[in-house]
């Protein structure tokens, strides 16, 4: 149980039998009235955002959530399969659960799988992944200063903007949060 002053940004709570993460928490108090904590919460399953308001004597249940680092194995067209390298246990996630992370999925790479009541509900990619360019205009040699970019399609189907000197077949490091090119991967 969490009391109102333990409701902080980043805390994961269970409300109306669903898991949520607090994205904003504010102390509010009308004129002569009582104090409340107003929280903005994001649903960990479908991403919708709502607001709730708790007074000091009310409590909120902390969500029983576990994050595990798991290796991506393969997609079979319907499900995406991950494995816990510690005990080889596997879970399958739906395309809806994987969401946009699908663009950063690479076999053998480690991803954070969020479990609620022992079921996988969300997937978080590592901050950076290295992926191969499968399609782009030929590189312009030596152009490392102009700052101009061109679109490149990666092995996952994601399109990112890359500098002109980058070539098809190059491996590049991509920021998964912004979807931006960082650098050419070495080695």
């Amino acid at each position: 149980m969490l009391t109102h002053n333990q409701l902080r940004q980043g805390t994961r709570v269970e409300i109306d039998d669903l898991p949520w993460i607090i994205v904003d928490a504010q102390f509010v108090k009308p004129g002569k009235g009582q104090a409340f904590t107003k929280i903005k919460i994001k649903n960990l399953i479908d991403g919708r955002v709502i607001e709730r308001t708790y007074k000091s004597s009310e409590t909120v249940v902390k969500a029983s959530i576990v994050d595990k680092d798991m290796q991506f194995l393969y997609g079979d067209g319907e499900f995406w399969h991950f494995m816990d390298p510690a005990n080889y246990e596997q879970v399958a996630m739906t395309s809806k659960q994987v969401g946009d992370v699908v663009y950063w999925l690479k076999e053998q790479e480690s991803y954070q799988v969020t479990f609620w009541k022992e079921k996988p509900i969300a997937l978080t990619p590592p901050p950076f992944v290295i992926l191969t360019i499968t399609q782009c205009e030929p590189g312009i040699k030596g152009d490392t200063v102009s700052g101009a970019t061109k679109p490149a399609i990666l092995q996952t189907g994601a399109t990112v903007k890359v500098p002109l000197f980058v070539n098809e077949g190059d491996r590049i490091r991509v920021n998964t949060r912004t979807g931006e090119y960082v650098e050419r991967a070495k080695g």
Binding site: V28, P30, G33, Q34, F36, T53, K55
Partner: peptide, 14 residues
């Protein structure tokens, strides 16, 4: 009633 009015004040009126 006071609690409900206070809560609706911060959720809706404010």
């Amino acid at each position: 009633r006071p609690l409900l009015v206070d809560r609706m004040f911060v959720e809706r009126l404010e």
